[in-house]
Simulated assay, not measured.
Amino acid sequence: MTNIAFLGLGIMGGSMAINIAKHNLSVTAWNRTAGRPIAVIATAAGVKIVETIEQAVTKADIVITCVSDVQDVRSILLGENSVATYAKQGTLIIDMSTIGSQAAREIANELQAKGLRFLDAPVSGGDIGAQNATLTIMVGGDRLDFEEALPIFQAMGKSITYCGESGSGQAIKLCNQLLCAINLASVCEAIEFAIGQGVDPKLVVEVCSTGAAGSWQLANLGNKIIDGDFAPGFAIKHMSKDLRLAKEALGENSKPLPAFELTSQLFNIVKAMDDGQGGEQGTHAIIRAYRE
Protein backbone atom coordinates (compact mmCIF):
# COMPACT_ATOMS: atom_id res chain seq x y z
CA MET A 1 0.00 0.00 0.00
CA THR A 2 1.21 3.52 -0.81
CA ASN A 3 2.09 5.39 2.36
CA ILE A 4 0.83 8.98 2.37
CA ALA A 5 1.85 11.77 4.73
CA PHE A 6 -0.56 14.70 4.99
CA LEU A 7 0.82 17.88 6.54
CA GLY A 8 -1.71 20.56 7.50
CA LEU A 9 -5.10 19.78 9.08
CA GLY A 10 -6.80 23.14 8.67
CA ILE A 11 -10.29 23.93 7.37
CA MET A 12 -9.42 22.32 4.04
CA GLY A 13 -6.65 19.88 4.83
CA GLY A 14 -8.43 18.00 7.59
CA SER A 15 -11.31 17.00 5.32
CA MET A 16 -8.96 16.22 2.44
CA ALA A 17 -6.91 13.83 4.58
CA ILE A 18 -10.09 12.14 5.79
CA ASN A 19 -11.33 11.60 2.23
CA ILE A 20 -8.03 9.98 1.23
CA ALA A 21 -8.26 7.62 4.21
CA LYS A 22 -11.85 6.73 3.21
CA HIS A 23 -10.43 5.28 0.00
CA ASN A 24 -8.52 2.66 2.00
CA LEU A 25 -5.23 4.50 1.62
CA SER A 26 -2.68 4.67 4.44
CA VAL A 27 -2.55 8.26 5.75
CA THR A 28 -0.29 9.63 8.46
CA ALA A 29 -0.97 13.27 9.35
CA TRP A 30 0.80 16.09 11.16
CA ASN A 31 -0.36 19.59 12.02
CA ARG A 32 1.67 22.51 13.36
CA THR A 33 -1.01 23.21 15.99
CA ALA A 34 -1.74 20.09 18.00
CA GLY A 35 -5.13 19.23 19.46
CA ARG A 36 -7.42 20.53 16.72
CA PRO A 37 -10.94 19.00 16.88
CA ILE A 38 -10.55 17.78 13.29
CA ALA A 39 -7.80 15.45 14.51
CA VAL A 40 -10.34 13.43 16.49
CA ILE A 41 -12.58 13.10 13.43
CA ALA A 42 -9.59 12.21 11.25
CA THR A 43 -8.47 9.52 13.69
CA ALA A 44 -11.93 7.98 13.61
CA ALA A 45 -11.71 7.91 9.80
CA GLY A 46 -8.45 5.97 9.92
CA VAL A 47 -5.87 8.76 9.76
CA LYS A 48 -2.87 8.24 12.05
CA ILE A 49 -1.96 11.51 13.80
CA VAL A 50 1.70 12.01 14.75
CA GLU A 51 3.61 14.73 16.59
CA THR A 52 6.49 15.49 14.20
CA ILE A 53 7.23 15.86 10.51
CA GLU A 54 9.87 13.14 10.88
CA GLN A 55 7.30 10.64 12.11
CA ALA A 56 4.95 11.55 9.26
CA VAL A 57 7.30 11.44 6.28
CA THR A 58 10.12 8.98 6.97
CA LYS A 59 8.24 6.02 5.45
CA ALA A 60 6.03 8.04 3.10
CA ASP A 61 5.93 7.47 -0.65
CA ILE A 62 3.89 10.62 -1.18
CA VAL A 63 3.84 13.74 1.00
CA ILE A 64 0.96 16.23 0.71
CA THR A 65 1.09 19.72 2.19
CA CYS A 66 -1.88 22.05 2.64
CA VAL A 67 -1.00 25.21 4.58
CA SER A 68 -1.42 28.98 4.30
CA ASP A 69 1.35 30.83 2.50
CA VAL A 70 4.71 30.61 0.76
CA GLN A 71 6.78 30.87 3.93
CA ASP A 72 4.78 28.07 5.57
CA VAL A 73 5.32 25.75 2.60
CA ARG A 74 9.03 26.56 2.42
CA SER A 75 9.46 25.99 6.15
CA ILE A 76 7.72 22.61 6.09
CA LEU A 77 9.36 21.37 2.90
CA LEU A 78 12.83 22.90 3.02
CA GLY A 79 13.46 24.36 6.49
CA GLU A 80 15.18 22.85 9.51
CA ASN A 81 13.75 19.43 10.44
CA SER A 82 11.60 19.56 7.32
CA VAL A 83 10.31 17.12 4.72
CA ALA A 84 13.58 17.45 2.78
CA THR A 85 15.45 16.43 5.93
CA TYR A 86 13.61 13.15 6.47
CA ALA A 87 11.95 12.05 3.20
CA LYS A 88 13.49 9.16 1.31
CA GLN A 89 14.94 9.74 -2.15
CA GLY A 90 12.35 9.86 -4.92
CA THR A 91 9.45 10.76 -2.64
CA LEU A 92 6.70 12.65 -4.47
CA ILE A 93 5.84 15.93 -2.76
CA ILE A 94 2.44 17.46 -3.58
CA ASP A 95 1.71 20.97 -2.36
CA MET A 96 -2.00 21.80 -2.38
CA SER A 97 -1.62 25.27 -0.88
CA THR A 98 -1.87 28.45 -2.95
CA ILE A 99 1.63 29.91 -3.21
CA GLY A 100 1.85 31.38 -6.72
CA SER A 101 3.64 30.12 -9.82
CA GLN A 102 7.05 31.63 -9.11
CA ALA A 103 7.35 30.09 -5.65
CA ALA A 104 6.15 26.72 -6.98
CA ARG A 105 8.87 26.67 -9.65
CA GLU A 106 11.55 27.66 -7.15
CA ILE A 107 10.48 24.99 -4.65
CA ALA A 108 10.30 22.35 -7.40
CA ASN A 109 13.88 23.10 -8.41
CA GLU A 110 15.17 23.05 -4.83
CA LEU A 111 13.45 19.75 -4.06
CA GLN A 112 14.67 18.21 -7.30
CA ALA A 113 18.23 19.10 -6.32
CA LYS A 114 17.65 17.03 -3.15
CA GLY A 115 16.36 14.03 -5.09
CA LEU A 116 12.68 14.69 -4.45
CA ARG A 117 9.81 15.11 -6.93
CA PHE A 118 7.23 17.91 -6.76
CA LEU A 119 3.73 18.73 -8.00
CA ASP A 120 1.93 22.00 -7.36
CA ALA A 121 -1.75 21.14 -7.00
CA PRO A 122 -3.80 24.04 -5.59
CA VAL A 123 -7.52 23.52 -5.13
CA SER A 124 -10.80 25.40 -5.42
CA GLY A 125 -14.15 24.60 -3.86
CA GLY A 126 -13.84 25.83 -0.29
CA ASP A 127 -14.55 23.89 2.87
CA ILE A 128 -17.71 22.35 1.36
CA GLY A 129 -15.77 21.01 -1.61
CA ALA A 130 -13.13 19.62 0.74
CA GLN A 131 -15.75 17.89 2.88
CA ASN A 132 -17.65 16.45 -0.08
CA ALA A 133 -14.56 15.48 -2.11
CA THR A 134 -15.73 17.69 -4.99
CA LEU A 135 -12.70 19.99 -5.19
CA THR A 136 -11.34 21.36 -8.43
CA ILE A 137 -7.63 20.47 -8.51
CA MET A 138 -5.16 22.20 -10.85
CA VAL A 139 -1.82 20.40 -11.22
CA GLY A 140 1.59 21.46 -12.47
CA GLY A 141 4.74 19.32 -12.77
CA ASP A 142 5.88 16.17 -14.51
CA ARG A 143 3.10 14.34 -16.36
CA LEU A 144 4.15 10.91 -15.07
CA ASP A 145 4.11 12.20 -11.48
CA PHE A 146 0.61 13.54 -12.11
CA GLU A 147 -0.58 10.17 -13.36
CA GLU A 148 0.92 8.46 -10.31
CA ALA A 149 -0.91 10.85 -8.00
CA LEU A 150 -4.22 10.82 -9.91
CA PRO A 151 -5.98 8.20 -7.71
CA ILE A 152 -5.19 10.33 -4.65
CA PHE A 153 -6.51 13.47 -6.35
CA GLN A 154 -9.66 11.56 -7.27
CA ALA A 155 -10.21 10.78 -3.59
CA MET A 156 -10.37 14.52 -2.87
CA GLY A 157 -11.78 16.14 -6.00
CA LYS A 158 -14.21 15.95 -8.85
CA SER A 159 -12.47 18.03 -11.52
CA ILE A 160 -8.75 17.26 -11.82
CA THR A 161 -6.71 18.89 -14.58
CA TYR A 162 -3.08 18.56 -15.57
CA CYS A 163 -2.07 22.12 -16.49
CA GLY A 164 1.55 21.72 -17.60
CA GLU A 165 5.02 22.14 -16.14
CA SER A 166 5.80 23.24 -12.58
CA GLY A 167 3.95 26.41 -11.61
CA SER A 168 1.15 25.88 -14.14
CA GLY A 169 -1.33 24.64 -11.55
CA GLN A 170 -0.62 27.72 -9.45
CA ALA A 171 -1.03 30.02 -12.45
CA ILE A 172 -4.50 28.63 -13.20
CA LYS A 173 -5.41 28.82 -9.50
CA LEU A 174 -4.58 32.53 -9.47
CA CYS A 175 -6.81 32.98 -12.54
CA ASN A 176 -9.53 31.22 -10.54
CA GLN A 177 -9.01 33.56 -7.60
CA LEU A 178 -9.28 36.65 -9.81
CA LEU A 179 -12.57 35.34 -11.20
CA CYS A 180 -13.90 34.52 -7.72
CA ALA A 181 -12.89 37.83 -6.17
CA ILE A 182 -14.12 40.07 -8.97
CA ASN A 183 -17.37 38.14 -9.28
CA LEU A 184 -17.93 38.39 -5.54
CA ALA A 185 -17.49 42.15 -5.69
CA SER A 186 -20.11 42.28 -8.46
CA VAL A 187 -22.50 40.22 -6.30
CA CYS A 188 -22.06 42.74 -3.48
CA GLU A 189 -22.70 45.65 -5.82
CA ALA A 190 -25.83 44.04 -7.28
CA ILE A 191 -27.19 43.49 -3.76
CA GLU A 192 -26.41 47.10 -2.79
CA PHE A 193 -28.05 48.32 -6.01
CA ALA A 194 -31.20 46.28 -5.28
CA ILE A 195 -31.43 47.76 -1.79
CA GLY A 196 -31.04 51.25 -3.26
CA GLN A 197 -33.89 50.51 -5.66
CA GLY A 198 -36.16 49.52 -2.78
CA VAL A 199 -36.56 45.86 -3.77
CA ASP A 200 -35.89 42.72 -1.74
CA PRO A 201 -32.20 41.85 -2.33
CA LYS A 202 -33.03 38.15 -1.98
CA LEU A 203 -34.65 38.48 -5.40
CA VAL A 204 -31.18 39.10 -6.82
CA VAL A 205 -30.20 35.63 -5.70
CA GLU A 206 -33.49 33.97 -6.58
CA VAL A 207 -33.88 35.47 -10.04
CA CYS A 208 -30.40 36.29 -11.29
CA SER A 209 -28.96 32.90 -10.29
CA THR A 210 -31.11 31.29 -12.97
CA GLY A 211 -29.92 33.44 -15.86
CA ALA A 212 -26.76 34.55 -17.62
CA ALA A 213 -25.60 36.39 -14.48
CA GLY A 214 -25.70 33.23 -12.38
CA SER A 215 -22.53 32.12 -10.58
CA TRP A 216 -21.34 29.97 -7.69
CA GLN A 217 -20.63 33.12 -5.70
CA LEU A 218 -24.15 34.46 -6.16
CA ALA A 219 -25.91 31.16 -5.50
CA ASN A 220 -23.85 30.13 -2.47
CA LEU A 221 -22.90 33.44 -0.86
CA GLY A 222 -25.61 35.87 -1.92
CA ASN A 223 -28.06 35.08 0.88
CA LYS A 224 -25.23 34.95 3.43
CA ILE A 225 -24.26 38.50 2.42
CA ILE A 226 -27.87 39.65 2.79
CA ASP A 227 -28.23 37.93 6.18
CA GLY A 228 -24.93 39.26 7.48
CA ASP A 229 -23.61 35.72 8.02
CA PHE A 230 -19.86 36.13 7.53
CA ALA A 231 -18.69 32.81 8.95
CA PRO A 232 -15.70 31.73 6.87
CA GLY A 233 -15.68 28.95 4.34
CA PHE A 234 -12.69 30.72 2.83
CA ALA A 235 -11.37 33.68 4.77
CA ILE A 236 -10.77 37.27 3.67
CA LYS A 237 -7.12 36.99 4.76
CA HIS A 238 -6.54 34.02 2.46
CA MET A 239 -8.12 35.68 -0.55
CA SER A 240 -6.14 38.84 0.16
CA LYS A 241 -2.99 36.71 0.19
CA ASP A 242 -3.92 35.04 -3.09
CA LEU A 243 -4.52 38.40 -4.76
CA ARG A 244 -1.16 39.57 -3.47
CA LEU A 245 0.45 36.54 -5.11
CA ALA A 246 -1.37 37.34 -8.35
CA LYS A 247 -0.06 40.89 -8.27
CA GLU A 248 3.47 39.61 -7.69
CA ALA A 249 3.07 37.22 -10.63
CA LEU A 250 1.94 40.06 -12.89
CA GLY A 251 5.17 42.01 -12.48
CA GLU A 252 5.70 45.72 -13.01
CA ASN A 253 5.36 45.79 -16.79
CA SER A 254 2.03 43.99 -17.13
CA LYS A 255 -1.07 45.49 -18.66
CA PRO A 256 -3.41 47.20 -16.16
CA LEU A 257 -6.24 45.08 -14.75
CA PRO A 258 -8.50 47.69 -13.11
CA ALA A 259 -11.20 45.31 -11.81
CA PHE A 260 -8.52 43.19 -10.16
CA GLU A 261 -6.87 46.25 -8.59
CA LEU A 262 -10.15 47.58 -7.21
CA THR A 263 -11.20 44.22 -5.82
CA SER A 264 -7.83 43.77 -4.12
CA GLN A 265 -8.36 47.10 -2.39
CA LEU A 266 -11.79 46.00 -1.13
CA PHE A 267 -10.37 42.84 0.43
CA ASN A 268 -7.56 44.76 2.08
CA ILE A 269 -10.02 47.32 3.50
CA VAL A 270 -12.06 44.61 5.22
CA LYS A 271 -8.95 42.71 6.29
CA ALA A 272 -7.87 45.79 8.29
CA MET A 273 -11.24 46.18 10.05
CA ASP A 274 -11.91 45.15 13.65
CA ASP A 275 -8.36 45.98 14.69
CA GLY A 276 -6.98 43.66 12.04
CA GLN A 277 -9.39 40.79 12.72
CA GLY A 278 -11.59 41.44 9.70
CA GLY A 279 -9.49 39.02 7.73
CA GLU A 280 -10.88 36.11 9.75
CA GLN A 281 -14.34 36.55 8.22
CA GLY A 282 -15.50 34.84 5.05
CA THR A 283 -14.68 36.37 1.67
CA HIS A 284 -18.27 37.55 1.25
CA ALA A 285 -17.66 39.99 4.11
CA ILE A 286 -16.21 42.37 1.50
CA ILE A 287 -19.73 43.84 1.46
CA ARG A 288 -18.52 45.66 4.57
CA ALA A 289 -16.20 47.75 2.40
CA TYR A 290 -19.31 49.30 0.85
CA ARG A 291 -21.05 49.94 4.17
CA GLU A 292 -18.50 50.96 6.80
Rank of each mutant, 00 (worst) to 15 (best):
C208Q: 14
P201I: 05
S159G: 09
K22C: 04
E165R: 06
S240V: 09
G115E: 05
Q217W: 12
I38K: 04
A104G: 03
T52Q: 07
G169Q: 07
P151I: 01
T134A: 02
M156F: 07
A259L: 15
D142I: 12
G228C: 03
T43C: 12
T136R: 04
V73Q: 08
Q154W: 11
N31E: 10
D120H: 00
A44C: 05
A185M: 14
D127Y: 13
K59T: 14
V27R: 03
N176V: 01
I41H: 10
A104H: 07
A246H: 02
Y86L: 03
R74Q: 13
A194D: 04
P232W: 09
G233C: 13
Y162G: 01
N176D: 03
V27E: 01
D275I: 07
E106H: 11
E148C: 11
G140M: 14
V204Y: 10
A249N: 11
A44M: 10
T263D: 08
T65N: 09
E51V: 05
I93W: 02
V204P: 07
A213M: 10
I76G: 02
Q55C: 04
F153N: 00
D61M: 06
T134G: 06
R244G: 14
S215L: 13
M156D: 04
A45T: 09
C208S: 15
E106C: 07
R244E: 11
F234H: 05
P201K: 04
K173C: 06
T210N: 08
A121M: 11
S68K: 11
C188T: 02
E110W: 08
V67S: 08
V40S: 01
E51L: 09
L116I: 12
G100W: 12
A87H: 03
V40I: 04
I99G: 04
S168D: 13
T85N: 05
L218G: 02
T283N: 15
S240N: 09
H284N: 13
V123I: 11
E292F: 11
G279L: 06
F6N: 02
N223T: 14
R105L: 11
Q265I: 12
N109P: 04
G126Y: 14
S97M: 05
H23N: 15
V27K: 00
G167V: 06
T33H: 14
G214C: 10
T2A: 10
M12I: 05
G211M: 08
I128S: 11
M12F: 06
G276D: 12
L78T: 03
A45D: 12
K237A: 05
P201W: 07
G233W: 15
